[in-house]
Amino acid sequence: MSERELPGLPTAALKNRDGALGARVVWLGELASRRRLFARGGALMGGGMGLILALVALPMLALVALAFATRGTHGEIEWTLTLNNLKRLFGYGILGWSPDILWILSRSVLVAAVTTVLCVAFAFPLAFFVASRPPARRYAWLALIVVPMLTNVVIRAYAWFPLLGMHSPLTKLAQILGFLAADEALYPSALAVYLGQTAINLPFAVLPLYAAVERLDPALIDAARDLYASRWGIFRHAILPQVRAALAVAIVLTFVPALGAFVVPDLLGGARGMLLGNLLQQQFFTARNWPYGAAISLMLVACSVVALWYYGRTQAREAAR
C-alpha cells in the first residue's frame, strides 16, 4: 500500500495486516502507515543517535578491535593482529615480565572499590538525612549535593591543594603527630586520592539512594520496628530490600567512573599514584600507542557493558511487570 493512498481516500484495503510495514495504524490519534511513522521516528532520532553511534558506540567497538592491532614505528596503526597488547596487560613487556602494570591495574580496582564503599557508606546517612527534612526544604538540600557534582572536576581536585599542602594546618598537625616527616605534605599521597575520589563520586551515590529512600514504605518500617528490636535489624530486613535496586545503581555510578578516574590521581596522587586512567591517557597522547591504550581501555569497556546490561535487564523486568 503506498502512502499516497492513506488519509481521506477510499478504504478498500482497510484490513489491518498486523506488523506489516505498510499497514495502517492509528497512533496517538494519527492515521498513518507504520512505515511512515518509523520513517519519522528515524528522522527525529537520526541526528542524536547518529552522533552517539558514530562518536561513542562504534569507536568503542573499534577500541576492542584496536587492542589486537600493532603500533607502527611512528605511532601509526598496523593491522597485524597480535596478542602482545593483552600480554602486556599481564606484565609481559618487551623487557620480560614485570609487575608494574599489574600493580597499576590492581591499585585502580582497589581505589575504585574503596571509593565505592566509602561513597555508599556516606550516601546512606545523607539520603536519609535529606529525606527526613520537610518536603519544602529537600530541594535546597539536594541542590547542596548537586552543586559540587556539577562543579568542574579539575577545580574539585585541586581544591584539596590548599588543605593538604605543605603549609596547611592539617599537614602541620600530621607532622606534629609524627605521621609525616617535616618536609612532607599530605599530598600527593594515597590518602589525598581517596579523599578526592570520595568527594567527587559521593553525589552520584546519594541521588539514586535518596530517590529510593524517599519512596520507602513507612508501614514496612513500622512493622519491622515491632519485629526487630535493633536498628540494624530494621535496616537489614525492612529498608535494604526496598532500596536494593537503587543501591546497585549507586554502586555502578560510583565504581565505573572511579575506575576510569584521571584527574584526581593525576593531581593528587603524584608520580607513584598512577592509575588506569593516567596510563590510558599516556598511551593515547604521550606514547602514541593506540593499540596498547585500547587494550587498557578494554577493562573500562567491559565495565560499561556490564553496567548497560544490568540497566537493560532491569528495564526488561519493569516492562514485563
Binding site: V56, L280, L300, Q315
Partner: peptide, 26 residues
C-alpha cells in the same frame, strides 16, 4: 525500543576517560 534505549544510555554510563578515548579514535 529497548535497543535504542540502551544506546541512549551509553554516553551516560561510559566513564569520561573511555568516552574521551572513543572520541580520539573517532
Amino acid at each position: 525500543r529497548r535497543a535504542l534505549d540502551i544506546l541512549l544510555h551509553l554516553p551516560v554510563i561510559t566513564p569520561d576517560i573511555l568516552f574521551a578515548a572513543a572520541l580520539v579514535v573517532a
